[in-house]
């Protein structure tokens, strides 16, 4: 495979907070050492529960947040510490779609102005004029190009998300970070927007980092999937491996919670995770999942499992006791009981 478009190594974000009566400084370890690659034209799905650091990761990729440590390499160039001006040409290749279609569009700007904003900011004058380019973009995302002069409040949630997509496309990016692009939409609309993204990917040869908590949507959209837990990737691999042969107990638990219509009528066991997600202020030692894991042993507390490919499968797993390949639900029922 060719050189990766985006290369993330050891990406870390700690937020400084003050806590307690003394106002002592502490840090929330929102993202703690991520490694992954995204190749041109492919989609990497980033899944995990809320609070696991996936949104923070997305924000860092487009440099809306400054990483505490680690590096982000885009098109072979380290962009981790580039200033705003140096970053500009790269921004055109690296865009973001936001979660909330209501707060992501400026309510006082017309649709035309919103979609043209990236062009204006970067001083780009398209060949046929800004208006023609904006209308082309609106058409591309399935909106009526005549709605150029309308305001966001005149559109539905799904349409607003399309406007946000058109804005992200304005600079002809190579990679788009989609931060939960459909989770704020009605279920009936979600599929349409995901389908739109897929079509755009095919037509424009886009790469995506697709952030979601909904495993079903990620499965539809992503070629490769990374599962995050408490600021760390616990398992990463091809879609088929992750969904059909999960090896990390956490991935397995997540998947067991997804309703599966094809298994209708069958006896299925859900893995119910007990306890809450630990606070990232003071994450558990060793493996972070051990406090909720049914397989946890002493070594899990002492030693942090590295994210590596283990025998029997292609995906990388960070677990001392990965699930055996092709394991069935016996294990699971034991736990649930």
């Amino acid at each position: 495979m060719s050189e990766a478009l985006l290369k993330v190594r050891g990406l870390t974000k700690h937020f400084a907070v003050r806590q307690g009566a003394t106002g002592a400084k502490a840090s929330v370890r929102a993202v703690d050492g991520l490694d992954f690659d995204v190749h041109a034209g492919e989609t990497l799905g980033l899944v995990g529960e809320s609070g696991c650091g996936k949104t923070t990761t997305g924000r860092m990729l487009v440099r809306l947040l400054e990483p505490t440590a680690g590096s982000i390499e885009f098109q072979g160039r380290d962009i981790t510490t580039l200033g705003r001006r140096a970053m500009r040409p790269l921004r055109q290749d690296l865009q973001i779609i936001f979660q909330d279609p209501y707060s992501s569009l400026n309510p006082r700007h017309t649709v035309g102005k919103i979609v043209a904003m990236p062009l204006e900011v970067n001083g780009i004058k398209p060949a046929g004029g800004v208006k023609a380019r904006v209308q082309e973009l609106l058409e591309l995302v399935g909106l009526n190009p005549e709605h150029y002069n309308r305001f966001p409040h005149e559109f539905s949630g799904g349409q607003r998300q399309r406007i946000g997509i058109a804005r992200a496309l304005a600079l002809r990016p190579k990679l788009i970070v989609a931060d939960e692009p459909v989770s704020a939409l009605d279920v009936s609309i979600q599929a349409q927007v995901v389908n739109l993204l897929r079509e755009l990917q095919r037509e424009l040869d886009l790469a995506f980092v697709f952030i979601a908590h909904d495993l079903a949507i990620v499965r539809h959209f992503s070629r490769r999937v990374a599962v995050m837990y408490l600021g760390k990737v616990v398992e990463i691999g091809d879609r088929a491996d992750i969904y059909e042969r999960p090896r990390h107990p956490y991935t397995k638990a997540l998947l067991s919670a997804v309703p599966d219509v094809t298994a209708f009528g069958e006896q299925r066991q859900r893995i119910r995770l007990t306890g809450d997600v630990p606070t990232p202020l003071n994450p558990p030692s060793g493996c972070r999942f051990r406090t909720r894991c049914w397989k946890a042993q002493d070594v899990c507390a002492a030693e942090e499992p590295p994210l590596i490919a283990r025998e029997g499968s292609a995906q990388q797993v960070a677990c001392h006791f990965p699930e055996a390949v092709g394991v069935t639900s016996e294990h699971v029922s034991e736990v649930a009981a």
């Binding site: 440099r63 970053m87 973001i96 936001f98 979660q99 992501s104 904003m117 970067n122 600079l171």
Partner: peptide, 14 residues
């Protein structure tokens, strides 16, 4: 804190 401000920053706005 609204996302449209972030969108502008992500496009390189000063």
């Amino acid at each position: 804190e609204r996302e449209f401000v972030e969108a502008a920053r992500a496009s390189g706005a000063g």
